[in-house]
């Protein structure tokens, strides 16, 4: 294949990666931004989204599209409910102390991951895509479903943006993020906001996972990579900055696809992790985020 088409393919793959990553990282960023909680279990909500999707899809033996779209609705709801419950049962009782909550979410990571291992097992299982349609380009054929994922992610992003910037709910969340005590003084039910945000963050990860599971199979360890990548994105984008998160996710998603064409993936991971760590140390407000107030 010539270089041009090759780059096009890499870009398309990168866009796909960026789409899923943006949704996942947005969930992490939202939770950190509003609650100041670093959710190490975030990747497991992603994994749970994929596993539940497989489970739902395998119950509907009609057309694959029925199973898929049922999963797209049911899986985020179940994952959101689990996140909601763990927020009530664990994080709230820790009073959102930053260090304790990290330790607790590490514990949650193991609990979710190992429970899935016990019930779902160690195998990777596929979910059928809702449709198969190959777009025949002059140089190669490309899956129409991949383009659907990218489009769906853009629609979801716009929806999240709309909720955050144009609705009362978004206003409440931003007020809580800006000044917790002040928001409380104005009668905002902080606790309910936190529980809602934590569930919403997990649901974003779950939706991303349902979208990707027809392309990559559901497996109990699949949450680790998205977790690390989401961390990278959120740090680069500036902790808690949504705009920065989207830009960084695009950059990482695209470059990851393109870089891994040229470098060994391990070396690429080493370099990117190291760079991001140095960003966190020397420029904690991130590369694209607004400066901390």
């Amino acid at each position: 294949m010539a270089f041009g088409p090759f780059l096009l393919l890499a870009t398309l793959e990168g866009l796909l990666q960026a789409a899923v990553l943006t949704l996942t990282a947005l969930g992490l960023s939202l939770v950190f931004g509003v609650m100041r909680v670093v959710n190490v279990a975030h990747g497991e909500f992603y994994m749970l989204g994929a596993v539940v999707a497989w489970w739902v899809a395998s119950m509907f033996s009609l057309h694959p599209a029925v199973g898929f779209f049922a999963a797209l609705v049911i899986s985020p709801l179940i994952v959101g409910a689990i996140a909601f419950a763990s927020e009530r049962l664990i994080l709230k009782r820790l009073n959102y102390d930053p260090e304790s909550t990290i330790v607790a979410t590490i514990g949650m990571l193991y609990i979710i991951q190992q429970t899935v291992l016990l019930t779902y097992g160690p195998d990777a299982r596929p979910v059928s895509a809702p449709f198969y349609y190959r777009i025949q380009l002059p140089w190669f054929g490309y899956s129409g479903y991949n383009l659907f994922v990218i489009a769906a992610a853009i629609v979801l992003l716009l929806a999240v943006w709309f909720v955050l910037s144009r609705t009362r709910l978004g206003l409440i969340m931003r007020a809580t993020q800006f000044d917790r005590e002040m928001a409380q003084a104005f009668g905002i039910p902080i606790e309910r906001v936190y529980a809602f945000v934590f569930a919403a963050g997990a649901m974003l990860a779950a939706i991303a996972a349902v979208l990707i599971v027809p392309i990559r199979q559901a497996h109990y360890l699949m949450g680790l990579d998205p977790l690390l990548l989401s961390f990278i994105v959120v740090i680069l984008g500036g902790l808690g900055s949504l705009r920065g998160t989207v830009i960084a996710a695009l950059l990482i998603g695209l470059s990851d696809g393109i870089i891994s064409v040229f470098f060994s993936p391990t070396l690429a991971k080493i370099i990117s992790t190291l760079l991001v760590t140095l960003v966190l140390v020397f420029k904690p407000e991130g590369l694209f985020g607004a400066k901390a107030r």
Partner: peptide, 16 residues
């Protein structure tokens, strides 16, 4: 084989 479940539960119970 899911012995790490114990690790997870222990972390949560201890910190709580």
């Amino acid at each position: 084989q899911a012995y790490l479940l114990v690790t997870g539960v222990a972390l949560v119970v201890l910190v709580l």
